[in-house]
Design a protein around this nucleic acid. Structure first.
Length: 221
DNA sequence: CCAGACGTTGTT
DNA sequence: GTCTGG
DNA sequence: CCAGACGTTGTT
DNA sequence: GTCTGG
């Protein structure tokens, strides 16, 4: 699907605003959010608030409950929408543990091998993308409980299709509950229209996984 | 029966 | 060339 | 996807 | 945990 999602990690107040909740400090004590929110090293991830466990952090790379070790994590960063209901590693999470990963954009590469041009794909009008995800709570024999998640991918639509065949499943702002909530989500009905996306050429500095800072998404000539 | 996989095309 | 790590 | 390692306790 | 392959 893509490389690193985001550099400008939205503040959780921004995420709240996007979901049309007005967070006020003075209400914090009495606040009963509909969603739980957990930080990763660079994202926030939204979970249903009915989830009893309050996890402090989440890690990208889904580890099924039955895993004996964490080796699977690096291969479980994406889940294909087409098969997610059947795959042994994902179907349980797809049924009961869906989440949303807000991001300001994601990367894709295009062009000839050896001279690949990175693109930053983001909403034309700004704001956040809501990426559909799945999560699991896994008990690491070595380090205790950890919440892990993965990103759901689908066939690309224009304009992304011009550069790549896959893309993340992007959820409409008003369909967060439809994805996170109970029941079987209808991906086609909750997908965000992609014509509102812009593909922006950005610096090849983004190629280095070690470089990550806001200037990476600035347009280049 | 047991052993081995369990996943996608891509991070952090 | 091929594998691993991010 | 891309970047970076690729190896051991050491010599002709 | 559950399925597939041998």
């Amino acid at each position: 699907m893509c490389a690193r999602f985001t550099l400008m990690m939205p503040s959780w107040q921004d995420v709240w605003k996007l979901l049309q909740f007005e967070y006020r400090e003075e209400d914090a004590a009495a606040y009963r959010p509909r969603y739980n929110i957990a930080p990763t090293s660079q994202h926030w991830v939204l979970f249903r608030a009915n989830d009893k466990r309050m996890m402090t952090r989440a890690k990208w790379g889904l580890i099924p409950r039955w895993s004996k070790d964490a080796k699977l994590a690096s291969r479980m960063i994406n889940a294909r929408l087409e098969t997610v209901a059947e795959k042994p590693a994902y179907r349980s999470a797809f049924k009961d543990r869906r989440c949303i990963v807000p991001a300001d954009g994601f990367y894709e590469w295009t062009g000839p091998e050896g001279d690949r041009q990175p693109l930053w794909i983001h909403p034309k009008e700004g704001g956040l993308l809501l990426i559909a995800g799945l999560y699991e709570d896994w008990n690491d024999p070595a380090n205790g409980p950890v919440r892990t998640f993965t990103i759901v991918t689908r066939d690309a639509e224009e304009p992304i299709r011009a550069v790549h065949d896959r893309m993340p499943l992007l959820v409409r702002d008003d369909a967060v509950d439809a994805w996170i909530g109970p029941g079987t989500p209808d991906a086609a009905a909750l997908a965000m229209p992609t014509e509102a996306l812009d593909l922006r050429r950005v610096s090849k500095r983004v190629n280095s996984p070690r470089v990550d800072e806001p200037s990476l998404v600035e347009p280049i000539a």
